[in-house]
Amino acid sequence: MNVYLGIDIGSVSSNFIMMNNQKEIIKNIYRRTLGNPVKAIQTGFTDLMDGCEEVTVKGVGTTGSGRHLAATLLGADVVKNEITAHAVAAAQFYPEVRTIIEIGGQDSKIIIMRDGIVHDFAMNTVCAAGTGSFLDQQASRLNMAIEDFGGQAVKSRQSVRIAGRCGVFAESDMIHKQQMGFPVEDIMMGLCEALVRNYLNNVAKGKKIEDLVVFQGGVAANEGLRAAFEKVLGQNLHIPPYYNVMGAIGAAILALEKSQGSRQNSRYKGCDYIMDGQFLSSSHECKGCPNLCEVVAIKRDQDILAYWGDRCKKWEGSLSQTEKANLQVV
């Protein structure tokens, strides 16, 4: 069977998708990056290929903030930003989609769709308040698994008002309300509503949220936030079945489309390449000029695969053209 892989390496989660040429999802893996993307890619990939010895990989797409790293390790045909990947995936499940709300670990986005393509978008700029990481942090402060957060929050009958403009303010507001004796579910629901207001003011910034609205990203699992969005917007939200791996699905679809449009073979380096190699990253401060860039090198055993972080591209440029072609964006 011919398959296409989509890999989304985000700040918090690393997601893997295997798709056949009918765009049907054969396997999906959602796991935490845990601060070590190289290991996350290796183990996630091993899990993905486990029991799938019969397949032939015809294309690989990567996305997320670790997309270049994943592309280097696996050999990718498409390296795409998260906006496009999420939009492509949402349009696949909901051709009529006009608004995509996507909240991930470190960033949140709004994507306005017209006729199946991105018409306008925005991402949070300076502050990560209102993203998954903040919810995570608050859940652990309340000594609660993040998976239970939403379920608890929707039990609330009267949410409390929490300031949502800034994560620090929100937290001190929550502590204040908690010490006054408000029930914990009311505070949690209040937080959800604060995050929704924050999202609408800081990210959506007056962009028209028209039906059909799709809510995706890891945070879409949170019932509390879903309820808060529906309450504030007065609109129905559609949660795709694979809401937490939509970026990876988008990357896989893009890889599939690319492979169908070209006669070139996939750049995929094969199972053995990633599973048998020892991948190491090392960094050093380049002393070439007073910028003192922190240059990162990714190595497989002794071979250097890629450099990152040099402003002048001196290190990046030192690799041969063919290797660079592997990292080509678009």
Binding site: S65, N81, I83, T84, I117, V118, H119, M123, V126
Partner: peptide
């Protein structure tokens, strides 16, 4: 795009790529 002290260019790069992609497709 707002600029302030920030050492990583990844965020800028992602937004520029997404914007370019969007106008290309449009």
């Amino acid at each position: 795009l707002w600029f302030d002290e920030l050492s990583g260019t990844a965020g800028i790069q992602t937004r520029l790529e997404a914007f370019t992609d969007m106008i290309y497709r449009r």
